[in-house]
Write a protein that binds this DNA or RNA. Structure first.
Lengths: 244, 244
DNA sequence: ACAAAAGTGTTCGATATACACCCATGA
DNA sequence: TCATGGGTGTATATCGAACACTTTTGT
C-alpha cells in the first residue's frame, strides 16, 4: 500500500455492544515487547488508525473498523473531534510511537465515531490483532486519551438513546420487551416500571409484535418484537421542544 | 509569525447573531482580483483559518474568531468535522488557493464550531477583512462547502435550543418575554401562544424579572428579564427521556 | 407443585392546549 | 384619543407515576 497518510489525522471508533446484561466496548490489545520478547507494557486502544489522504472521514472510519474487526455495513456516527496537544504524550504512547518508527511525535487530531451492535449476534474476526469486548463500566488501562473519547461517546450514546430510537441497533433483530427495558435501564441508569414502560412502547407503532415467542426458557415465554424502520420514518414526530 | 501550520487542518466558526427579528450569521467577504484590480469573483466565507501545530482545537477556534472579528471570550462549541475530498475543489476555491500561493491543493479537514451572540450588543472590529452580518434565511454565494457547514450548524443550534437554555446567549443581558418568544419562533419556526409561553417561562426560575421596564416604546413598556446561570445550574433537571 | 419471568388496568396529579379581553404608554 | 404591543386566567384533554396480582412455561 503506497497511499499517503494525512499526517496528523486519525479516526477512532467506539464500538458499543450490548449482551442483555451490560454495555460493552470493543477494544484492541496493545502490547509492546523488547527485543527479547519481554513485555514492556500492555494496554488497550479503541479501534483507530490514521486517515489516508485520498479518503474522506466516513470512508476512513468504515475502512478502519473493517480492517480491525472484519465488520462491514455498520452505522458509524461522528460525535466529536479530539485535538489536545498532549493526547499522545504519555510515556507508553511515546514508547509505542518510537518502536513503530512512526515519525509522528507531533499532535495527531482524531475524529471520533461510534457505532452500536448487538454483541450477541455479531462475530468479530481477529485480523492480526487481539480484539475483545470489555464491559464499559469497568474499562481501564486505555491508551492515549481513549478514556476521554470513550466517555464522550458514552455521553452521546445516552443522549441519543433518549432522543431517538437507536436502542434497537443494540438489540438482536427479534427481542423481548424485557430485553429492551433492560437495555435502557442499563445504559441510562434508571429503573422503569414494567407496566408504564410497556404502555409507552405500545404507543410506538414502529415496535411491532411478531407471531413468535421465546423458546427454551424455564418460564412463560415472552412475545418477540422487531423494530420497523419504515414505520418509524413514516410516523416520526418533530423534535421535542424545550417548551412543550 | 513562524509557527508551522498543521497541514490539512482548519477550523471554521459559525457565528450566529439575533437582532430581534431574524437569525444572522457573520460572514467574511472574499474577493479575488487580477493584476489590474478587476474583480474575478466575489463570495463569502465563514470565519475560518488553518490550525497551527502548537495549538489545540479550542484555542485555534478562539484565536481565529479574535483575529477576524476582534471578539473574545465567546462560548464556542464544536459541532462537526468536515472532511469530504471535494470540499475545496470548486473552481473559485481553486483559483483562490492558487492566487494565495497556498501549496494546499489537497483536501483540508475542517473542524466546525459555532457560537451565539446578540448582534445588537456586539461590535465587530474589522481587522483587515470585510465582515458583515447576513440573514441566515437568505445567505447565498458561500465559498467551499460552507453552505453545508452552516446548515449543519443550524441543525445543531435548533436542536440545542430545544434542549438547553442557550437561547439567552442570543439575547441582550436584559430582554423582554416577547423578544424571547420571537427568538424561539424565528429559529425553530413555530408560533407559540403568548399566555402558554409565559406560563412556561414563569416555571423557569432561572429567568428572573428585573425591577426595570422598557423605555422609549410607543406602547405599554415591557418588563425586563435576565437569565441567571447560577439558578439554572443549581436547579437543572436531568435530561429529557425518550420515554417519560 | 414450584420457581421464574410474562403480562395486564386503574386512579391521581401534572402538564399541555385552546382561547379573548383590558392595560399602559407615546404620538 | 388612538394605535401598539403588554399582560393576564380558566376549562379540558393528555400524559406520566404509582401500584399488585394472575398466567404460562420448564423442571
Amino acid at each position: 500500500m503506497d497511499r499517503k497518510l494525512a499526517e496528523s489525522l486519525s479516526v477512532d471508533c467506539v464500538l458499543f455492544g450490548f449482551d442483555m446484561e451490560k454495555l460493552n466496548v470493543l477494544l484492541v490489545d496493545r502490547v509492546l515487547k523488547d527485543d527479547n520478547d519481554t513485555i514492556i507494557f500492555s494496554d488497550l486502544t479503541l479501534t483507530g488508525y490514521h486517515i489516508y489522504k485520498d479518503e474522506d472521514l466516513n470512508s476512513a472510519a468504515a475502512r478502519i473498523v473493517k480492517d480491525i474487526t472484519g465488520l462491514e455495513g455498520l452505522v458509524l456516527e461522528q460525535f466529536h473531534t479530539f485535538g489536545s496537544l498532549t493526547r499522545l504524550q504519555r510515556p507508553n504512547d511515546q514508547l509505542w510511537s518510537k518502536q513503530l518508527g512512526d515519525a509522528i511525535s507531533d499532535r495527531v487530531v482524531s475524529v471520533g465515531y461510534y457505532s452500536l451492535l448487538p454483541n450477541t449476534d455479531i462475530e468479530i474476526i481477529q485480523k492480526g490483532r487481539i480484539v475483545n469486548w470489555h464491559p464499559v463500566s469497568s474499562v481501564k488501562n486505555l491508551a492515549y486519551d481513549h478514556e476521554q473519547i470513550l466517555k464522550k461517546a458514552l455521553g452521546h450514546l445516552r443522549y441519543k438513546l433518549q432522543t431517538e430510537p437507536i436502542g434497537f441497533e443494540l438489540l438482536p433483530d427479534k427481542f423481548t420487551l424485557t430485553q429492551m427495558q433492560t437495555l435502557y435501564e442499563t445504559i441510562i441508569g434508571v429503573k422503569f416500571d414494567k407496566r408504564n414502560f410497556r404502555k409507552k412502547i405500545s404507543q410506538m407503532n414502529y415496535v411491532v409484535a411478531l407471531n413468535e415467542k421465546q423458546t427454551g426458557v424455564a418460564h412463560k415465554p415472552a412475545q418477540l418484537f422487531m423494530f420497523s424502520r419504515e414505520v418509524y420514518e413514516k410516523t416520526r414526530k418533530e423534535r421535542f421542544s424545550f417548551f412543550t
